[in-house]
């Protein structure tokens, strides 16, 4: 393994993150705080409780997921798209680093960033609502797995994208709707039966549900199903990344 190579990529990507610290950290924290104010205080005062948990606390796992998913996709896709766009990718391609090392460097950095942001949002939420975490280990496990798998997806999007427009297309048109419709801000038991069934096809539901279970011990779908969903999703992403490097898709001519 070329550990120096992995470290070089990882540090380079993290440096980018800390260079734009305001954009990287302040903006997700600010937007999350706004969600708390709007959903927690304004709407939450009318909803009161969901299955014994105050609405303000209930939305915390969903809010963290929303940020972590978007940040993972954005950071990872931008991280690999930008060198492609400005041409510095030549150096990565001509360096003695394997595909695995490139992925560890880029995806590792992107996942670290979203993990940081997720943690910051969690800490922020303590200022707004009372939360207890019933299964801290599983909470962390779900969080890390989500960061990694969606950073992998972001990496794939970054390689696939040929323009900045395409880069934003998937997060905007696919992921954001899935997150909002995936029970981030409600329990699907609140929905009419037909929509409950449809929601079961939304992969994000399984993430949010599993993550929420780690906090409050309640879930829309069985925890095992959540775990299965996220590991399958990670495996599929890994498979695609493996194929990309094997074939040189949109990387090499």
């Amino acid at each position: 393994m070329n550990w120096y190579g992995i470290r070089a990529i990882y540090r380079f990507e993290m440096a980018r993150f800390f260079r734009s610290i305001v954009q990287s950290i302040v903006s997700p924290v600010l937007s999350t705080s706004l969600y708390f104010v709007v959903f927690g205080a304004a709407i939450g005062s009318r909803i009161q409780e969901v299955e014994g948990v105050s609405y303000g606390a209930f939305i915390v796992p969903g809010l963290i997921m929303l940020s972590v998913l978007t940040q993972s996709l954005q950071n990872a896709s931008f991280g690999i798209y930008f060198p492609k766009f400005i041409g510095t990718i030549y150096e990565i391609l001509s360096a003695p680093v394997s595909a695995l090392e490139i992925v560890i460097g880029y995806v590792g950095a992107a996942a670290t960033k979203s993990l940081l942001i997720g943690s910051i949002i969690l800490v922020t939420s303590f200022f707004f609502v009372d939360i207890t975490i019933q299964h801290p280990f599983w909470m962390l496990a779900f969080l890390v797995l989500t960061c990694v798998s969606f950073s992998l997806l972001g990496f794939i999007i970054g390689i696939w994208a040929k323009s900045f427009e395409q880069l934003n297309l998937v997060p905007l048109l696919v992921v954001t709707p899935l997150v909002f419709l995936g029970g981030s801000f409600y329990s699907i038991s609140m929905l009419p039966p037909i929509w409950q069934s449809i929601s079961l096809f939304n992969p994000v539901l399984y993430l949010v549900s599993g993550f929420r279970w780690a906090f409050f011990g309640m879930s829309d779908v069985p925890v095992a199903a959540s775990l299965f969903a996220i590991t399958t999703f990670s495996a599929v992403c890994l498979g695609i990344v493996w194929w990309i490097f094997k074939s040189g898709y949109r990387l090499k001519t």
Binding site: Y4, G5, A8, R11, A15, I86, T88, Y90, E91, A95
Partner: peptide
């Protein structure tokens, strides 16, 4: 192998020393 490409491909916001350090690490040197 070292390669100096024809096009000036550099990350504009990066610092000179950092980008050279990055290259060295990428090629597996401490």
């Amino acid at each position: 192998v070292g390669l100096v490409p024809q096009e000036i491909n550099l990350e504009p916001f990066e610092f000179v020393m950092n980008t050279v350090r990055f290259s060295r690490g990428l090629f597996g040197k401490g």
